[in-house]
């Protein structure tokens, strides 16, 4: 065994020490690179959603404040939310059942569309189109409560435990809640929760909701009559 002794303030390491240091640093770098790639790739699957951040377009149509703020434009009912973690309830209430011009950034998930709207809404004339409402009956489903804005695309993933606190903030700020459930066929359903705000303590956790399903044009809402946490 050599009697080499490393002192950091000496300008250069000995040749043998330098070789060992290079090997150690190379191994550490390769391990770190492997970890970086693996841990990035191993994450939970992301949803097929999008948010056109900063891209604002003009939309015209009939605004409805209930059951959740929405705009019937281009034959499709588009949900409306405000900027940040805020709903558009107060803004929409001033233009309920009126034709308006709106600027907003598109959020989209599995065909459900939402606009993050700017506060300037322009009232327009013309015939008002009332929402088509269809009662689909009572259901009991198990799933997870999230906020619609993040889940539909502002964040991805916009559900699950890591996103929980953000969902709490959004729901507290008036963003409509969504219920992510699977129906009796196992198909994934994104339902808009209406009625009273859901209990924030059970956001992003498995809950069973019993309520009434309603179809509003292309949107399906669930008016919750009871929300029960699924026991751990």
């Amino acid at each position: 065994m050599t009697d080499e002794f490393y002192v950091g303030y000496v300008p250069r390491q000995t040749a043998a020490q330098a070789r060992f240091t290079r090997t150690a640093v190379t191994v550490a770098a390769l391990l770190a690179a492997g970890l970086a790639w693996t841990l990035a790739a191993w994450r939970a699957p992301f949803d097929n959603s999008r948010f056109e951040f900063g891209v604002y377009r003009d939309y015209t149509g009939t605004l409805a404040a209930h059951p959740v703020p929405s705009l019937l434009a281009e034959g499709q009912r588009i949900l409306l939310v405000a900027e940040g973690k805020h709903g558009a309830n107060s803004l929409a209430a001033r233009f309920d059942q009126r034709n308006v011009g709106i600027r907003g950034a598109l959020i989209e998930h599995d065909g459900i569309r939402m606009l993050e709207i700017l506060p300037s809404i322009e009232p327009l004339g013309g015939p008002v189109v009332a929402p088509r409402e269809q009662d689909l009956g009572s259901v009991t489903l198990t799933g997870e409560i999230a906020d619609s804005k993040c889940h539909l695309g502002v964040m991805n993933p916009g559900r699950g435990k890591v996103h929980r606190d953000c969902a709490v903030r959004c729901l507290s700020g008036g963003v409509p809640a969504t219920f992510l459930a699977r129906d009796e066929t196992g198909a994934r359903r994104i339902l808009l929760l209406t009625g009273a705000r859901p209990p924030l303590d059970h956001v992003a956790e498995p809950v069973t909701i019993t309520g009434r399903l309603t179809r509003w044009d292309q949107l399906t809402t669930l008016r919750a009559e009871s929300i029960e946490p699924v026991r751990e």
């Binding site: 770098a29 970086a36 790639w37």
Partner: peptide, 20 residues
């Protein structure tokens, strides 16, 4: 090393999960 790790992680995430 730190910059390389961050760059590689973001690149790997963008490649394997382009919707993220």
């Amino acid at each position: 090393g730190a910059a390389g790790f961050l760059g590689l992680f973001v690149a790997a995430g963008a490649v394997t999960h382009p919707e993220a």
